[in-house]
Write a protein that binds this DNA or RNA. Sequence first.
DNA 1: AATGAATGAGTTTTCATTCAT
DNA 2: GATGAATGAAAACTCATTCAT
Lengths: 195, 195, 195, 195
Amino acid sequence: MPKVGMEPVRRQALISAVIDAIHERGLSHVTMGEIARRAGVSAGLAHHYFGNKDQLLLATMRHLLSELGDEIQQRLAGAETARERIRAIVAGNFSACQFRPAVISAWLAFYVEAQTDAEAHRLLRIYQRRLESNLLHALQELVSRNQAVDIAEMAAALIDGLWIRRSLAGEQPDPESAVAVVETAIFGAISRYHA
Amino acid sequence: MPKVGMEPVRRQALISAVIDAIHERGLSHVTMGEIARRAGVSAGLAHHYFGNKDQLLLATMRHLLSELGDEIQQRLAGAETARERIRAIVAGNFSACQFRPAVISAWLAFYVEAQTDAEAHRLLRIYQRRLESNLLHALQELVSRNQAVDIAEMAAALIDGLWIRRSLAGEQPDPESAVAVVETAIFGAISRYHA
Amino acid sequence: MPKVGMEPVRRQALISAVIDAIHERGLSHVTMGEIARRAGVSAGLAHHYFGNKDQLLLATMRHLLSELGDEIQQRLAGAETARERIRAIVAGNFSACQFRPAVISAWLAFYVEAQTDAEAHRLLRIYQRRLESNLLHALQELVSRNQAVDIAEMAAALIDGLWIRRSLAGEQPDPESAVAVVETAIFGAISRYHA
Amino acid sequence: MPKVGMEPVRRQALISAVIDAIHERGLSHVTMGEIARRAGVSAGLAHHYFGNKDQLLLATMRHLLSELGDEIQQRLAGAETARERIRAIVAGNFSACQFRPAVISAWLAFYVEAQTDAEAHRLLRIYQRRLESNLLHALQELVSRNQAVDIAEMAAALIDGLWIRRSLAGEQPDPESAVAVVETAIFGAISRYHA
DNA sequence: AATGAATGAGTTTTCATTCAT
DNA sequence: GATGAATGAAAACTCATTCAT
């Protein structure tokens, strides 16, 4: 039953299937066959649209990165003060659509993949630099440049660390408390410098 | 030319080979053949000693966990005050033998594997609980129990986050500055509660 | 935008695409998708017109055979003496439209295909018999029947051999010198028998 | 039942299987599975020893080229006069072990493969150049350099052409008459130049 | 103890072909 | 008439694992 205009639908279904499959089986055990089955299409179609497994995986990673970017950008748009911008960045990183178990699993998997895969590495670095740069700009309005650098690094590491630990804990992820931990650490550090 | 008493040597060589192979190829691309080649033995021997690939991987993970445990235990032995114990735990996590690029890669890989592999998950949780428990005990001498729980979580996440980010940065890992970041965050939080 | 009367145009475009594709990728690597792409149509249309891949390939072969036949027939029409008829046959085999690199590649590929494909074999044998029979008739006016048979075989082999070698040489094919080599061999053999 | 020292045996069996499979199915229809089956081993083993299909095919081609080279070299060793050397080269090209139907099919297939495969092309050109060079040296003792060049080209083309036509004819190949045709053409041409 | 030979199951990938639109 | 969606079967290739030696 071929219909026209199905390409974007199938692409999205396949990317979602990748995320779910990684969550349940782990990236190293995911097969094209399983992804296709979850997406309700044949393995051939997955290749037809993405060329090969690596490309499909990278497309999924790009999807996640872009979703996260949008999430943060949206929140930044409504932020006026430096404190609000910092909150926007932190909250964006733990936004509902990103902090779902399956998405967390996929993120982690790609994080690790980026250790050895050049393209995955490149994609992740771009996101990381942007995150740090955003944080840095906001922080520099509150503390000196050197202090901002230190706090930004700490905050970025804390965000990643909370992600990884919450995911491993297996409990229902709790975005709000995660946000609170990071904000406490950031604003605590800022007030320390101000004292 | 089989020699007697080679077993521990071979086992260690294979475990080291796993770590290096994960670092260079990524866990999902590591094969028994490559591990064996790196260890300078035949693939058959790897099976002879470890039974199968999963067991070899888990043995490697156990090796890393035990090494980290020893590292922290050693430092704790010489620590007398609560502050010193906290410093011992943090420093142990970034000790030279652990904070090598190849070891970091392997840790990350196992972290992710633990998402979907029951035994890996169990091993990792044991280590995490011990780490948190150690931290908690030390912190409770300085702050209230509730405050200690919050700080311990933050500290643990920060340690993991620094690991993961430093590894991805590709630069030579710098244990001392990592330790400094974590200690600053911990003692900053403590002093905040005291104020 | 389907147009009426496009069928012969599409068919010819597909056949030309087959020849070019064989030249650039080799028959064993040619796919329907690539042929269709080169012809500027969808893969579905290629099937619509030719039924399946084998039929399209055979249609291409028939096209080449018929083109070669026409080429020779045209030249034979203007030939009066036996020597002229021999020259017509030889020259026809190296005529410009046949001795193009892409066409040579396709010919060779079909030659080989004919080893194992019954229909291709049949088509090629028809052409070969006609070529030999034409040559034989002309030669028999100049030498005895037995001598004519020998010379015809030699000439036919020489034609094929020059084709195959020129094609592999990769140089710009030079029909005239090829013709000269064959004619020298034929007329040399004839004069030898006459001596 | 693994035995040591099987590698050369398996390699040879696989190469022979390639030749037979090409003869019966045609290069474009040959699969690794069929080759392995004919060789009496698993498809995995074929990959184990040759890496991939292309490499196995090229190894087969190298095998044929080297066998042909040996055949000619042997005959050349016993030749003293220029005429004998020419006969050695021609006879070597139609030697029993080369002029078997299956071997002929394989040769043709590789000839065509060389049109589009760089490595196959390289291998074939080396053989062709050596053949022409050998012929040229022998011929230059009997005729002028220019005449030798012409005769060598004609002879080489005739050899290839006879191969291709005899193979297509499907009859039992007849080395002796093929040799006779080539020698008649060569020595006829020489005597023509001498006249 | 140790190896290399060998396999078979599983995975990716390709591609001719079909079919609704 | 023409397309793009979709499939399924077949092919290449990988690799953990077994086993005779």
